[in-house]
């Protein structure tokens, strides 16, 4: 008697969670659709866009650059150690470049920017919601989605490929530093091996991923901030939800995009 009841309770719980997940997905999709629809409907706020490009793009450079530098260096060491088992140490430059450009650059860059930007967007918009600044925008004849959401999303979609592009160069340079200073590679050989094996599609696939991740981390930050609950707890919850959801979605989207580019 107890067992069927437990099983039924478990099923009901799974059902409730699934429905809630679907409802949430629908709400985010609608929010994203409404945001995109404002792209073709004036007025636009170019000053806000520039401001957000600076905040999301320029100020994220140190985070993305340092992540790429250390990742490139660590990757060179790992590939050298792994390659040595097959007497294939010479693959280090090409594998470091391909690994950084196709996978680690966009994914780690996306996750780092999600941590930095999604949280800050969610906290900022959440605070604006709680202190009625978003309602004030409406009373000042300004559509909050146009003024707050669209510039942030556009800025992230534009800035992420640039950030990842710069991160790719720094990551490869990290591998080069370790390769030449620690593993005994000749500078010219390392550079030639990097260039010879790298294809244009490796770079473009990484940049496309970056743009998609930029969209994900910004729209999720905006969604949770815009719909933040009341008080400090509500804003804190919105910030946590934004970072966790954006990170998971970035990893899921990365798999789907990798399948698409495979």
């Amino acid at each position: 008697m107890l067992l069927p009841r437990l099983a039924l309770g478990l099923l009901a719980s799974i059902g409730r969670s699934t429905l809630e997940l679907l409802r949430g997905t629908g709400r985010v999709a609608m929010f994203a659709a409404v945001t995109i629809s404002h792209l073709v409907r004036p007025p636009w706020y170019p000053t806000e866009l520039l401001h957000q490009l600076l905040r999301i793009g320029y100020f994220s450079l140190p985070v993305v650059g340092l992540t790429a530098l250390f990742t490139g260096g660590a990757l060179a060491l790992q590939i050298y150690a792994g390659g040595a088992r097959f007497n294939a140490e010479t693959v280090v430059p090409s594998i470091v470049a391909i690994g950084i450009v196709r996978e680690l650059g966009p994914v780690l860059g996306g996750l780092m920017v999600a941590g930095r930007v999604s949280s800050s967007i969610a906290a900022e918009l959440g605070t604006m919601r709680v202190t009625e600044q978003i309602d004030a925008l409406t009373t000042l004849s300004t559509n909050p989605v146009k003024f707050l959401i669209l510039p942030r999303v556009l800025a992230a979609v534009i800035a992420m490929p640039v950030l990842v592009g710069v991160g790719d160069v720094i990551g490869v340079f990290g591998g080069y530093l370790v390769g030449t200073e620690r593993l005994g590679f000749q500078s010219t050989t390392y550079i030639l091996n990097t260039i010879d094996f790298l294809q244009v599609t490796d770079v473009t696939s990484g940049l496309v991923k970056a743009a998609v991740f930029g969209f994900i981390l910004s729209i999720i930050g905006c969604y949770f901030g815009y719909h933040s609950g009341r008080g400090a707890r509500g804003v804190g919850q919105a910030t946590t939800n934004a970072v966790v959801t954006a990170s998971i979605l970035i990893l899921a989207a990365n798999y789907l995009l990798t399948e698409a580019f495979f």
Partner: peptide, 19 residues
């Protein structure tokens, strides 16, 4: 609605200034 809001002003409880 835009025309109505153009001729409208509101003072919020916490002032709701853009910080």
């Amino acid at each position: 609605r835009r025309a109505f809001l153009r001729s409208f002003g509101m003072l919020f409880q916490g002032a709701a200034l853009f910080d």
